[in-house]
Amino acid sequence: MLTILFDGIAYGMLLFILACGLTVTLGLMNFINLAHGAFAMAGGYVTVVMMNRYGISFYWCLPAAFIVSALIGLVLERTLYQWLYQASHLDQVLFSIGIVFMAIAATDYFMGGQQQLINLPPELSGRMDVFGVGIGRYRLFTIIICAVLAVALQLILSKTRFGSRLRAAVDDRRVAMGLGINVPLVFALTFAFGSGLAGLGGAMGAEILGLDPNFPLKFMIYFLIVVSVGGTSTVSGPFLAALLLGIADVAGKYYVPAIGPFVIYALMIVMLIVRPNGLFSRGGR
């Protein structure tokens, strides 16, 4: 039981790291970026290539995945995304689906369509026994990293100058510009950071979530649920939503395998009926 819970938490934490960049793009730029998973996939493949082709240590791959995905994000934001911040949601959806399709086909072309496997360092593989609860070492590693990241994120947003500028830009773009904040720069850096986090999530998730060219499509629904259930105004909202989703999904697939795949949809529908404006949204605007 506790093992399932533990796995669920690890899964949820991973979803949070993957999706929190999307939360920011949505909350900050009001941009529905369905291609967010493509950045995560990029991170995953960076890890696969570095480890399997060049034999570089897993620990070096994680920051590399972050940096590569962030750079891709930065380039795409400057060249393409920034033109669509004012566009309709339909345009944004079409555009980002286009990016997803291109990413899938390109990945398939360069890397092949098969599932990619990575060999974790020995100290991270296997399980250990803590008070009778079987705990996967890698899951524990994931939880620790993600928890640190979540706390860091919360601190960055609430305590640093960049965080306050970001929040100012979210609240009122025009006023923020009037105050001398370089809003496009803030946007670009935030987008890159969010993409980087997704890349990191993709790298760490290659083991738990699997990695193949269809990754961005497969996890699109998870990201959307995390963001719409969690809301875009806080860090804690998506965090709790991701945890809930992760635990429900893992538990559902373990206990009721026949209907396991439906647990997330059931969760989605229940949420829609009970709290149509998001689980953690502030009541009324």
Binding site: L84, D91, L94, I97, F101, M102, D108, Y109
Partner: peptide, 20 residues
């Protein structure tokens, strides 16, 4: 035959950027 999806995606991106 295998990678037409790429061009469909490209079409979408171009379509939106030009202004549908």
């Amino acid at each position: 035959p295998q990678y037409w999806m790429f061009y469909i995606g490209l079409l979408l991106v171009i379509l939106v950027l030009i202004g549908r």
